[in-house]
């Protein structure tokens, strides 16, 4: 599996000279499988750039297909959809797996984004590609890959984390993870989902002092992420979903602090990196 980061920022895109190294686009990750399939996780503004990249290949000719896994429908996880060039090419085929418990509920939420008051597209029906919306269940197949999903707490709401497996290799995506109480232990359900992951991508929106004043927003610190990686015995931890106000220098210091957290918790053997737009990881 090849994992590529197209958007690594939380809440709202953060353009500016201070965010160039890690990137200011909101959440979007692509997974190219060894068998040549494409799975996309989340549709933040990074999706536009992924789409422009895909247009050079099969998607530009209307012969592309991909699964899109959607963690939840807050803006920063869906706002790239209207700018995703491959959905305007007839012949392309997308299957979205997301929250909401029913395909109709999820489709209505995505349709609301295209409301003519807000979007010139007016409706999802103006997509030229096939755009099939399904409710994610706890275990399903997406582009022939085994995917498991777990609904975890995200402040006053919930989001889905995904475990994607191919030929014994495991990638886990857990963005927007945050319990509204202080000092909560790692969520056992999420620990189970992430167990033994080769790569665990985890929300590291905040440093602890910022989380303390914004607990109700439902995001993790690098300490929470380190504790999850250790509890789940992951091999590598990827930091993700940085606060919109954090500069590149801030993220550098979060990464150093996260390394120290991992070492303190007994995770000396766990690899660590801070996701950057454009970077690719191979599992």
């Amino acid at each position: 599996m090849k994992i590529r980061f197209w958007g690594v920022r939380g809440s709202i895109p953060a353009p500016g000279p201070d965010t160039i190294a890690y990137g200011g686009n909101t959440s979007c990750v692509s997974i190219h499988t060894a068998s040549g399939k494409l799975v996309i996780v989340d549709m933040g503004t990074g999706l536009m750039h992924l789409g422009n990249h895909l247009m050079a290949g099969a998607f530009g000719k209307g012969q592309g297909r991909a699964a899109i896994l959607l963690s939840h429908t807050h803006w920063d996880h869906i706002q790239g959809l209207g700018f995703f060039a491959p959905v305007f090419i007839p012949g392309n085929h997308f299957t979205v797996f997301g929250p909401g418990g029913s395909p109709n509920v999820l489709e209505e939420i995505l349709e609301g984004q295209m409301d003519p008051n807000f979007s010139p597209l007016q409706t999802l029906k103006n997509f030229a590609a096939i755009f099939d919306v399904k409710a994610a269940t706890t275990a399903f197949e997406a582009e022939d890959l085994r995917v498991s999903a777990y609904e975890h707490v995200h402040g006053t709401t919930t989001a889905l984390a995904f475990r994607i497996e191919e030929a014994g290799k495991v990638f886990v995506y857990a963005s927007d993870v945050g319990q509204p109480v202080a000092d909560a232990p790692p969520d056992p359900g999420l620990v189970a989902l992430a167990r033994g992951a080769d790569v665990l991508l985890h929300d590291t929106t905040y440093r602890p002092s910022d989380q303390a004043t914004r607990r109700n927003r439902g995001f993790s610190t690098y300490e929470d992420a380190a504790a999850m990686a250790v509890a789940a015995q992951a091999r590598r931890l990827v930091m993700f979903h940085y606060d919109q106000d954090y500069s590149d220098a801030d993220v550098d210091s979060l990464r150093d602090a996260c390394r120290a957290s991992l070492d303190t918790l007994g995770g000396q053997d766990i690899g660590l990196e801070a996701a950057r737009e454009g970077d690719e990881l191979e599992i």
Binding site: R9, P15, N25, T45, G80
Partner: peptide, 18 residues
């Protein structure tokens, strides 16, 4: 100063991506 969608990144950092 940007239209359609925010565009962070090196190529837009002088005029701005907001």
């Amino acid at each position: 100063v940007r239209g359609s969608i925010p565009v962070p990144g090196r190529a837009t950092s002088r005029y701005g991506g907001n």
